[in-house]
Computed example of a mutant assay.
Amino acid sequence: MASEDSRPAALAEPDAVSGIVKWFDPVKGFGFVVADTGGPDILLHVNVLRNFGQSSIADGTGIELLVQKTDRGVQATEITAIHPGDIQQNAVLSDIVGLDNDALMAAPIEPARVKWFDKAKGFGFANVFGKPDDVFVHIEILRQSGLSDLQPGEALAVRVIQGKRGHMAGEVQAWETVLNSADPQQ
């Protein structure tokens, strides 16, 4: 009779860790996080990211995780928060240079779906629910939100501004991020 000791040990309670995304490759389905306190790299699997409502995450993005030590190393089990880095200084989009942040924040957050996005080209389009116009999405706006890529049909929350060439996303967030941070009394 096999003893219960021959099966994998029950995993202990996960530890809360803050860190930075070292790299993440959505094609490979994983990446690694470096903890603020040091130690071994933390495996971040795409399924953990999807459970948070995102299909990608930009390198250098701040992240808070629950992790567990396994026979294969430290692995993320849940994302509790994502903190996009300050990438705005690198964005040189003529449509947003000099944009008043108060004006951007006055625009409502609207639900949208990705129509298409080409990471190599650095842009794509989304559709806001109930509105006929396409919304231009630039990769620099995406990176400011801690995202690195979008998939067709992916749900988003966007703040739409009027750019020089039409409607464009001034801010992009994963839809689940907005749902998780919404006031429950709304």
Rank of each mutant, 00 (worst) to 15 (best):
E13N: 13
P14Y: 12
A16C: 07
A16T: 13
S18G: 01
S18I: 03
S18L: 03
I20G: 00
I20N: 03
I20F: 01
V21F: 04
V21E: 02
K22S: 15
W23L: 06
W23A: 02
F24K: 11
D25L: 04
P26H: 13
K28L: 13
V33R: 00
V33H: 01
D41S: 12
I42L: 07
L43I: 11
H45S: 09
V46C: 09
V46I: 15
V48A: 06
V48R: 06
R50Q: 13
N51A: 13
S55V: 13
S56C: 08
I57E: 04
I57G: 05
A58P: 00
D59T: 15
T61A: 11
T61Q: 06
G62P: 02
E64N: 10
V67L: 08
K69L: 11
T70R: 15
G73E: 10
T77A: 03
E78S: 15
I79T: 04
I79Y: 03
T80A: 00
A81W: 04
Q88D: 09
Q88S: 10
Q89A: 14
N90I: 02
N90W: 13
L93I: 02
D95K: 06
D95F: 08
D95I: 07
I96F: 12
D100N: 15
N101E: 14
N101M: 11
A103Y: 08
A103P: 02
L104P: 07
M105L: 15
A112Q: 03
W116K: 08
F117V: 08
D118T: 10
D118E: 09
K121G: 07
K121Y: 01
F125H: 12
G130W: 01
K131N: 04
K131G: 00
P132E: 12
